[in-house]
Design a protein around this nucleic acid. Structure first.
Length: 879
RNA sequence: GGGCGCAUAGCUCAGUGGUAGAGCGCUGCUCUUACAAAGCAGAUGUCGCUGGUUCGAAACCAGCUGUGCCCACCA
């Protein structure tokens, strides 16, 4: 784990400890530290560098938004990945930027206008768009401020916005290319219309939920030869142009080809036979409204039926007559009333729960509507997007998510990309006075002259974000950055936008970049939830502003808590108590460093050879290198929860508790041994800080610079595991020591002794691995030398060592006898189980050797426990 | 309707065949000079139910129950 950076002379400055207060105060450190990182250019990515590239593009947040815990979570993952790679010597680019988020942003600004009693139409298109830009200028800085608070190591000099000049050019370029390749076309179809947002939306922007509706049965035609149809949307009957039945349905066969009277309208409509109709459902006869239902539209096409639009863009009835001007829901009940008056309702309304589409932006019930829109023909694009994952060029983590991905790209309908909005990339198509249609590329001349107008629609916001991995790098220009940093390394995002964003990037990326996928790994994370696993929402009152927690506990604490919850692809619960726990951990790191500095931990000179070190030193170096290897493997597998947990336990339990305690005796004793330990203490701490840095950057950098006197851990080298420092013997030795110490402590606790109270003790360590550890053992277990008049009142044989304690007059024999008896019973039971197992021939024949070995070990341990406990019992004085 | 997942300590979750784990919470004792945002010790689980495979199942298989998510043109 050599650090190749130069070691300055002032490392391990003892006086530094006095400058460290006893508690870590994040608020004083984080802000200035972040600005220093940025000023020094640590996060700037150099396209001319000859280091290997590592690129992650930020999932661009909505420009109007503010950061929530979900962002904090995602950014913690990305920041950890990129910080580690930077330390490993990669040329790292974390590409920042924001999304114009068409419909969402337009809604926000419209709401602002509404407060002044205005609508966007009062301003007009140009002034409204100007207003949105203004709004962006005011609120766009909010997110970058929050990202700085979080410590995000992004290259701010490369910040991009989906409506930037360059990115707009990318949009226009690919639109033109798709148009020329006939992968973009304009067609009239049934689309999902939001009567509140007044725009078409794509299929995935529709959220289906079970709504309570009413199914009414209406008789069409005369009483004698009528047909009964059932519907939940009675108002659409005004637009019916047929009744459909199944071709094989005997009940209706004689009616096919005849006409029937459509109630309330005086119109006569045909009865057609169509295989789409399910004869088992309802009456087996379906009303057909081609202008307001996707299935009916298809039936209409097959039977050459006319389409009659009966609802306008607001969902208001447009057909002349008694229902003109009624809202769709009003019209529904009014029309049912009118039908009932005519005796057309044959079965009363019955409650019916069915799946109804809602606008994902405003929750308004979607109205399917016939409309002329622009479409992307996704067939070939989706095929390529699916193949790239199928053939392994792109990997999805966790793998279970692949089936979802395939299910989508393999069953995709064409993508409706035009939006009747004002905020977004305007469709680059111009219409001439004589019906000419011209798609304009970035280098083309815009047609001028009388009668030429541009399409008024804008593109779906996901159209431009689908280009993000290369548009941000300058595409369509062949920039050095594009050359250096594309394709990106890994995409980190939530599984909730797998279809919205990831799949679109795959389709557009493969198409635009000649078959090169935009990233080779997709790492999907879950959603942040509250401490009970409930979804966070403002209305439920459990939403948390991450800034509040960062203010109270520090950014590192929030980051560490999120990282510890980050099991791949699963949701992440987080609660304030847990953030406190992480804050405590940061403080622990702080104080451990304080201890090290106060005790002269040093980085001067080479790390002493194993022969010059105590077992504790060799043990902690062994564990350190094991941890480096473990953490590395977990990083490469995107296992943030596990690697954070490994770091937590290594740092706190092994370094900060055991090693620090064990080293105290050595340090106090002084001499060459103490010198070696000071060096090891410095080494272990320094490497641990480097290991922790990607997850908790602020506290580690503060401490690391203090400890080393060097510039910053941000640009230090990532630790490399050194197998030569692994020391199984030392690990065994220290494990034994821990066992003995724990047994003594337990005895002391049972006897109600103060933890700090020194107890006279005689130690007999002959024949054990602990002969060299008497000082450490006495120090950690608070045992003082046996002086004159020592009288052993308790004897603890543990692991071959015999510890005699003088507790004259204070020992609680009854309690101890009880505890020992209980433990003895447990050990005997254990021994019996192990023996039974070893007497089982089937087990011995089939079990793996390691398993058998384990049982032998269990038996041995039970036997030695019995010996020890029996001896302890015998050694107890009479009650 | 189809698909995928989950059910383990009070809570949130790890644990893909060999004696049940973590964090937080809980109990007791301590301000033992790095840290009380701490230290030490401790308690707590028929691993959803029922069968099956196996010498051995929390883990593998089947069914059941509960629960979550995704998809779908259920008039």
């Amino acid at each position: 784990m050599t650090d190749t950076n130069q070691r300055p002379d002032n490392s391990g400055d003892h006086s530094a400890a006095e400058t460290l207060p006893t508690q870590y105060t994040p608020a004083e450190v984080e802000g200035p530290l972040y600005e220093r990182w940025v000023e020094r250019g640590y996060f700037e990515a150099d396209a001319k560098s000859d280091k290997p590239p590592y690129t992650i593009v930020i999932p661009p947040p909505n420009v109007t938004g503010s950061l929530h815990l979900g962002h904090a979570f995602e950014h913690t993952i990305i920041d950890s990945l990129t910080r580690r790679k930077r330390m490993q010597g990669y040329e790292v680019l974390w590409q920042p930027g924001m999304d114009h988020a068409g419909i969402a942003t337009q809604n926000v600004v419209e709401r602002e206008l509404a407060k002044e009693g205005k609508s966007r139409h009062d301003l007009g298109r140009e002034a409204f768009v100007e207003k949105v830009w203004q709004w962006k200028a005011e609120s766009g800085g909010q997110i970058s401020g929050q990202m700085r608070r979080l410590g995000d190591g992004v290259d701010w000099s490369r910040e991009r916005f989906t409506m930037d000049e360059g990115l707009s050019q990318a949009v226009q370029t690919i639109f033109k290319k798709l148009y020329d390749d006939e992968l973009i076309y304009r067609a009239e179809r049934i689309i999902n219309w939001c009567p509140r947002c007044l725009t078409a939306i794509s299929d995935i922007e529709v959220e289906y939920q079970d709504d309570d509706g009413e199914l009414v049965s209406i008789r069409y035609g005369s009483e004698a030869d009528g047909v009964v149809v059932a519907t939940t949307r009675a108002e659409t009957m005004l637009g019916d142009t047929a009744v459909a039945v199944h071709p094989d349905d005997e009940r209706y066969r004689h009616l096919v080809g005849t006409e029937i009277e459509l109630p309330l309208t005086g119109r006569r409509i045909p009865i057609v036979a169509d295989a789409h109709v399910d004869p088992e459902f309802g009456t087996g006869a379906v009303k057909v409204t081609p202008a307001h239902d996707p299935n009916d539209f298809e039936i209409g096409r097959r039977h050459d039926l006319p389409s009659i639009t009966v609802l306008d863009e607001h969902g208001v009835i447009t057909v002349h007559g008694p229902f003109l001007g009624l809202d769709r829901f009003e019209a529904r009940s009014t029309i049912v009333g009118a039908l009932r008056a005519e005796g057309r309702i044959v079965a009363e309304k019955r409650p019916y729960t069915h799946s109804v589409g809602h606008c994902s932006r405003c929750k308004t019930t979607i109205e399917p509507r016939l409309s002329l829109q622009w479409w992307v023909k996704v067939g070939p694009l989706a095929q390529a997007a699916g193949d790239a994952v199928r053939d392994g060029r792109v990997q999805i983590h966790p793998k279970e998510m692949e089936s979802r991905y395939f299910g989508w790209v393999d069953n995709l309908h064409d993508w409706c990309i035009s939006r009747q909005l004002w905020w977004g990339h305007r469709i680059p198509v111009w219409y001439g006075p004589n019906g000419e249609v011209v798609c304009v590329g970035p280098d083309d001349e815009i047609p001028t002259g009388e009668g030429w107008t541009q399409d008024t629609d804008v593109l779906d916001t996901w159209f431009s974000s689908g280009l993000w991995p290369f548009s941000t790098l300058g595409w369509p220009e062949q920039t050095p950055s594009l050359e250096k940093f594309f394709p990106t390394s890994v995409l980190v995002t939530g599984y909730d936008i797998l279809f919205f964003w990831v799949a679109r990037m795959m389709m557009f990326g493969l198409y635009a970049m000649d078959g090169t996928p935009p990233f080779h790994t997709i790492a999907l994370h879950g959603m942040v939830r509250d401490q009970f696993g409930k979804k966070m929402s403002k209305s439920f009152g459990n939403a948390v502003n991450p800034l509040d927690w960062m203010d109270a506990y520090g950014s590192d604490a929030v980051r560490f808590t999120l990282a510890r919850g980050a099991n791949p692809g699963t949701d992440v619960p987080i609660g304030e108590d847990w953030v406190q726990g992480s804050r405590n951990f940061c403080n622990k790191v702080w104080n451990a460093t304080r201890f090290a500095l106060m005790n002269g931990a040093t980085l001067d000179g080479p790390l002493p050879a194993a022969e010059e070190l105590t077992a504790a030193d060799r043990w902690i170096l062994s564990r350190l290198n094991a941890t480096v290897a473990e953490v590395d493997a977990l990083y490469d597998d995107y296992q943030f929860a596990k690697l954070s947990d490994a770091l937590f336990h290594f740092a706190w339990d092994e370094v900060f508790d055991w090693y620090v305690e064990l080293s105290k005796a050595t340090l106090i004793a002084g001499g060459p041994q103490a010198e070696a330990t000071r060096r090891v203490l410095g080494e272990v701490l320094e490497v641990t800080l480097r290991l922790l840095h990607p997850v908790i950057p602020f506290v580690t950098d503060t401490l690391w610079t203090t400890l080393t006197g060097r510039e910053s851990v941000v640009v230090a080298d990532w630790p490399v595991a050194d197998a030569a420092r692994r020391d199984v013997a030392a690990e065994r030795e220290i494990e034994t020591l821990q066992q003995v110490v724990t047994e003594i402590r337990r005895f002391r606790a049972d006897q109600g002794l103060n933890p700090g109270q020194k107890v006279p003790a005689q130690l007999d360590l002959t024949g054990t691995a602990l002969t060299a550890h008497e000082a450490a053992l006495r120090s950690v277990a608070k045992l003082q030398p046996a002086g004159d008049g020592f009288h052993a009142t308790a004897t603890l044989p543990v692991a071959g060592a015999i510890v005699a304690l003088d507790l004259s007059g204070t020992i609680d024999v009854v309690a101890e006898r009880k505890r020992l008896a209980k433990d003895l019973a447990t050990a005997e039971k254990e021994l019996a189980q192990a023996r039974a197992k070893l007497a089982n021939d089937a087990f011995l024949a089939k079990a793996a050797p390691a398993a058998v070995e384990k049982i032998h070990a269990r038996q041995a341990k039970a036997e030695s426990d019995i010996t020890r406990l029996t001896a302890q019992l015998a050694a107890l004085p009479e009650a």
